[in-house]
Design a binder for these strands. Structure first.
Length: 466
RNA sequence: GGCCGGAUAGCAAAGCGGUUAUGCAGGGGCCUGCAAAGCCUUACAGACCAGUUCGACUCUGGUUCCGGCCUCCA
């Protein structure tokens, strides 16, 4: 039984899809005016884990993740770069897809763009105006009248009067209420714009998600997700727009991924303390970053540091070391996976609001069994190794070749290393330890300087990166 | 100021009203020419103060500290 924490009700709830055959999930994606940072990576990775797990339970899962490719920051950046907005956004969309590939993230089923949803946005705004929930200001902008939606603030636990009390004084005074938010903005000269029934302009930020989720998943769907910072006002506004326009419940479950922190403080573009995914990829591979993200629960804060990434790397090294050199088993893997209940327990861990730390701990338990069986029953070890890889596949790790993982990032070529090892083993055979190249640290060991660790096996010497 | 979270061993991070989380690092041992890897074993927890309970890291109340949202943000 899958349980998911629902931000809306502040508790874990049993997940019952509206249509038992098909689960619909909408996740707020990126605004593409810059490279994705590690905070974005966390949302991308976690919803990838969530989607993978949902697919194991339900025959059909429709995962929609949008791209915001029109907004103030994009326009500003395009002007600064003297670049067309589409050339800018396409560049960063491509970069995002590259980053996702490196992190082992499967593409969403549908990746709609705001600029591709203009007609649906018109339709929704029109419907809100008809119902007198939205209005046009003197300057032509269309606003949503927050006081007309009785449940406003329910998701984020805000109260309209309290919000009103703490509001900042705005320059814009044509709004009926300072809390009203924009649905359609009139274009300023030289800004990208679309012709609308209300004049030339562009959509406000919140309306696109209401329009796109409705188009692809319908008025009422199962899961809506995003980063926790989107809960207010973005998701609150989405609920107001969608439920106001459609007279229907919007999403059943709201899922929010916690922040990535730097020195226990939020990482964000606004604070300018962020690390881009591609920047981190220069020092750590994508799987290590993915492991680091999965090593804490998705709702907890996650502190970004090299130490934590090193931990993740060491953990993955242990898992890959366990499966290294194992081959396909003669023993029936299904029979073995029934005899050992790791897959069942992994499923149970993920069923409990996607508890990835528990899921990972199970991989280590299994790795230990593999290591023990290796010396006793190699065929069983092979089968368990297969099982370990299979469990890894459920959360998107352990799918590269173990040797490849354990040897990557070393500057010497395989031939150079093999030659050194041959020389060394010749000397070892003659017990000529002290004059041998590449001995141990205490004998003037130098492979570590090349980032290499040697391992003298019974039949051969192997190596891996340090 | 209003509304939310959090505080777990050297580091990271979970579950759980009583029983080993897990990974890295540490101690002892096995294995090894020396190592590495692996295995066995071991130490080190639950911010603070009360309360509930036969029993609390786990529940309740309070205190302190930290973070987030209330404005664009994943």
């Amino acid at each position: 039984m899958l349980k998911i924490y629902n931000t809306f009700n502040k508790q874990k709830e049993e997940f019952q899809p509206i249509n038992p055959e098909k689960v619909g999930m909408y996740v707020c994606g990126m605004t593409v005016y810059d490279y994705c940072h590690i905070g974005h990576a966390r949302v991308l990775v976690m919803f990838d884990v969530i989607t993978r797990h949902l697919r194991r339970h339900f025959t059909q899962v429709e995962y929609v993740r949008n791209i915001t490719d029109i907004d103030d920051k994009i326009i500003k950046r395009a002007v600064k770069n003297k670049e067309d907005i589409y050339s800018l956004t396409n560049r960063f969309i491509d970069a995002m897809h590259e980053d996702e590939l490196a992190l082992g993230i499967l593409p969403p089923d549908i990746e709609p763009r705001a600029t591709g949803a203009i007609d649906q946005i018109f339709y929704m705004i029109e419907s809100l105006i008809e119902k007198d929930i939205a209005y046009q200001c003197k300057n032509g902008d269309i606003y949503y009248s927050v006081r007309k939606f009785k449940n406003y603030g329910k998701l984020s636990g805000k109260n309209l009067d309290e919000l009103e009390a703490g509001i900042r004084i705005e320059v814009e005074t044509s709004k009926q209420d300072p809390l009203d938010f924009v649905l359609w903005k009139m274009a300023k000269p030289n800004e990208p714009s679309w012709q609308s029934p209300w004049g030339n302009g562009r959509p406000g930020w919140h309306i696109e998600c209401s329009a796109m989720s409705c188009t692809h998943l319908g008025k009422h769907f199962d899961i809506h997700g995003g980063g926790i910072d989107l809960a207010f006002p973005h998701h609150e506004n989405e609920i107001a727009q969608s439920e106001g326009a459609n007279n229907s419940t919007f999403a059943n479950i709201w899922m929010h991924v916690g922040f990535v922190n730097i020195n226990n403080e939020k990482m964000s573009k606004s604070l300018n303390n962020f690390f881009t995914i591609r920047g981190v990829l220069e020092n750590y591979n994508g799987e290590t970053i993915r492991y680091f993200i999965m090593s804490s629960h998705y709702r907890s804060p996650l502190n970004f540091s090299n130490e934590n990434l090193d931990n993740a790397k060491a953990s993955l090294t242990r898992l890959y070391t366990a499966i290294r050199g194992l081959s396909a088993s003669k023993a029936a893997t299904t029979e073995v996976s029934q005899r050992f209940d790791y897959e069942e327990r992994l499923t149970a861990a993920l069923d409990d609001d996607f508890n990835t730390p528990i899921a990972l701990s199970l991989l280590f338990e299994l790795a230990k069994v593999v290591n023990v069986e290796r010396k006793k029953d190699i065929d069983l070890a092979n089968a368990l190794g297969q099982l370990l890889k299979k469990l890894g596949s459920h959360i998107g790790i352990l799918q590269t070749n173990a040797d490849e993982f354990l040897k990557q990032g070393v500057s010497l070529s395989n031939i150079q290393i093999d030659n050194k090892i041959k020389q060394r083993n010749k000397a070892r055979k003659n017990k000529n330890f002290c004059t041998t190249p590449w001995l141990t640290e205490r004998h003037g060991y130098d492979p570590t300087k090349a980032g290499i660790v040697l391992e003298d096996g019974i039949s051969a010497t192997t190596w891996r990166r340090k």
